[in-house]
């Protein structure tokens, strides 16, 4: 059981960004992807989620042996895929609570309704764990939220939807150290043998709090190096140029 990416090529407006990417995240593991800006990390995340701006030119992705690319965006989510966005969209007029209810209702069998009382209880409980004020239930999704509030809101959705595989795209950016700890704690409580994580980050700092099992380095649309959690430290120390140089010399 894994999220298996094989020889993935993807382009935007005819420019190839992902250039033959291979990666496997088994259930129960936390993998990190580190890489310089522009290396294609967010592109990978959005291709997995099914964003229509990106054209998959070849390769495949299977999630627990299901073909991810055979599914629509919403089907992927209901099948257990989750992406915490680097830049979450703002949805004026749609309250956080109504949004989450709609997302959970979409997972109910036909004809069954979500238990509203249970839902609110669970949401309030999880917001408490993330240090989110209760007023965020009634506020429009992400509208006027600070960077940190948006990231917490992504993790709230992660906790409510309990996916099988979660990709977190730069969830640490825009967070101060206290917020980072809260968010990491939220993610850590979600770690389970039934769930795989792919944590995308530019900085090693997040990985002090969400300790990965495996670290991958991405450059120019490919995974160029894979190692244990110490690889993150080494990268932090030597910088991304080190990987790029290795790439050139190899």
């Amino acid at each position: 059981m894994s999220l298996l990416i094989t020889d993935l090529h993807a382009a935007i407006d005819g420019t190839e960004i992902l250039k033959g990417l291979n990666l496997e995240v088994p259930k129960g593991e936390v993998h990190a992807i580190m890489g310089p800006n522009g290396s294609g990390k967010s592109t990978l995340a959005k291709v997995l989620a099914g964003h229509e701006d990106y054209q998959v030119t070849s390769g495949s992705v299977s999630m627990d042996n299901q073909d991810l690319f055979a599914m629509e965006v919403d089907e992927r989510s209901r099948a257990g895929f989750f992406l915490a966005f680097q830049y979450p969209a703002e949805i004026p007029g749609v309250s956080n609570a109504n949004f989450l209810r709609a997302a959970l209702q979409a997972r109910m069998p036909k004809g069954e309704d979500l238990d509203a009382v249970e839902f609110y209880k669970e949401m309030r409980d999880k917001m408490g764990k993330l240090g989110m004020d209760q007023k965020f239930t009634g506020r429009a999704v992400n509208e006027g939220f600070s960077g940190g509030e948006k990231k917490r809101n992504e993790i709230l959705q992660l906790m409510m939807l309990a996916p099988s595989y979660a990709v977190l795209d730069e969830t640490d950016s825009g967070l101060d150290i206290d917020a980072l700890k809260v968010v990491a704690e939220g993610v850590n409580t979600m770690r389970s043998p039934a769930r795989g994580f792919l944590v995308i980050t530019h900085y090693q700092r997040l990985l002090d709090y969400i300790v990965p099992d495996v670290v991958h380095v991405m450059a120019d649309g490919k995974i160029v190096k894979t190692g244990g959690k110490d690889l993150a430290l080494e990268l932090e120390e030597k910088g991304y140029d080190w990987v790029k140089e290795e790439l050139v010399t190899s």
Partner: peptide, 23 residues
């Protein structure tokens, strides 16, 4: 906006309806 809601499992027509209702 539609993509964001769909990425949470909400079918496209429902996503559009939610956004229009929100508006």
């Amino acid at each position: 906006e539609v993509f964001y809601l769909m990425a949470r499992g909400i079918p496209g027509p429902d996503a559009r309806r939610l956004i229009a209702l929100g508006f």
